[in-house]
Amino acid sequence: MPLFTRTRLNYEDRIKTDFILSGLFQYGQMDTFLFVALVILFAVALMGNIILILLIQLDTRLHTPMYFLLSQLSFMDIMNITTTVPKLATNFLSNSKTITFLGCESQTFVLIVLGGTEALLLGFMSYDRYVAICHPLHYPVLMSKKICWIMVTCAWTSGSINALVHTLYVFHLPFCRSRLINHFFCELPSLLQLVCQETSQYEYTVLLSGLIILLLPFLAILASYACVLTVVFQVSSGKGQTKAVSTCFSHLTVASLFYVTALSTYTRPHSLHSPEQGKAVAVFYTIITPLLNPFIYSLRNKEVIGTMRRLLV
């Protein structure tokens, strides 16, 4: 079909055409092994997050602001991995790589919502630890149930508005090139590669929203843990300092994996994107981070382990 004709197709006509996902794996022996490993990681991540949510719900001693925010994080991680991995597995096993226009649009929207919401929530979680350690007497007031719900609502609302704006704009652009998306799911930078009109101005909008939603919370986390470590080193013994450093380092490592990989995807011009590199980076914030979060943040805590033992006995 000629280019000038395709650019005049309306939205209703365009949604009848499927996209094709290149996938993460091909069909060699090594790819099959990596696929099985990925499915195992998916199952472990899913189980870990579900167990954490159940433990928090069943034990009233875990009904605290910290664990309330952690349960929200686990819920987001479950949604994140179930939005990408099942479709990847289905396409690999059936040798069918198609995804409908509306399916791609929905996947893009959900993933942007979850990415933005999780970025803000991680920032709020670091604030919770900052208040608990640096201002313990004010903790019941500064982290009341009402304020926790305001934080969660703010995170979900901001992430949803950001996702809605970007999704509606991108999916009303003319896709005049091949419908082959060089990725294993529908992601904004990969979709921009298929657009036949100039998108440099829009990329500045993506950059700005990425800096606000990703970079600002990350800087807040760094500042919060810097304050926490300062207080700990002033009042704690050597053993307490070691534990605090270990905990902060673990949290910062996981948070850095999420923020740095997401920033490298959403704040770089699409002309500089490498498809293979983009796939590898996406694995970290869509699969590895949801796998690590429940273990790093909660399942190694004494309170959570104690709850698990009481429920199993």
Rank of each mutant, 00 (worst) to 15 (best):
L216I: 15
P217G: 04
L188F: 03
T199D: 00
S178Q: 02
L214N: 14
V232Q: 12
L207H: 02
F218Y: 15
L229E: 14
L191K: 04
T205M: 03
T199R: 01
P217M: 10
V254R: 06
Q241P: 01
I221D: 09
F233Y: 10
H183V: 00
A244L: 07
S209H: 00
L252H: 00
G240W: 07
F233R: 15
A262S: 14
L216M: 07
L216V: 15
L188C: 02
G240Q: 06
L207C: 03
C248K: 01
S178V: 02
S246E: 05
L188A: 00
G240S: 07
H251I: 14
L194D: 02
G210K: 08
G238W: 05
V231C: 10
S237G: 15
H251N: 14
S190C: 03
S200T: 13
P189Q: 12
I212W: 11
I181G: 09
V245F: 13
A226D: 03
T205G: 08
P189M: 13
C196T: 08
F249L: 11
V245P: 03
E187S: 13
Q234H: 11
L214W: 01
T247W: 11
C186G: 12
A244Q: 11
L191G: 01
L211D: 03
V231F: 01
A244K: 06
Y204R: 07
A244F: 07
S250Y: 05
S209N: 09
V206H: 04
F185V: 02
I221E: 14
K243C: 00
L214C: 09
S256H: 07
L180M: 08
T261H: 05
I213N: 09
I181T: 04
G240Y: 07
F249H: 02
E203T: 06
L180F: 08
S236F: 06
G238M: 10
S250E: 12
G238I: 06
S236Q: 12
R179G: 06
I212E: 09
Y202M: 04
T199A: 01
L192T: 01
V245N: 04
P217D: 09
E203G: 07
V195E: 05
Q197S: 03
E203N: 04
F218Q: 07
A220H: 13
L194N: 05
G210N: 08
K239A: 15
T230Y: 08
A220W: 04
A255E: 12
L222N: 07
S236N: 15
L215Q: 04
L208R: 00
S209A: 12
L216Q: 03
H251T: 04
P217F: 09
H251A: 04
L207M: 10
T253Q: 02
F184P: 00
L180Y: 03
L263S: 08
L229R: 06
V195M: 10
S224R: 05
T253P: 00
C227P: 03
V228E: 04
L216T: 10
K243Y: 12
L257C: 14
C248F: 07
S256M: 11
R179A: 12
S224F: 06
T261F: 12
Q197V: 13
Y225H: 09
Y204G: 05
L214Y: 07
C186R: 05
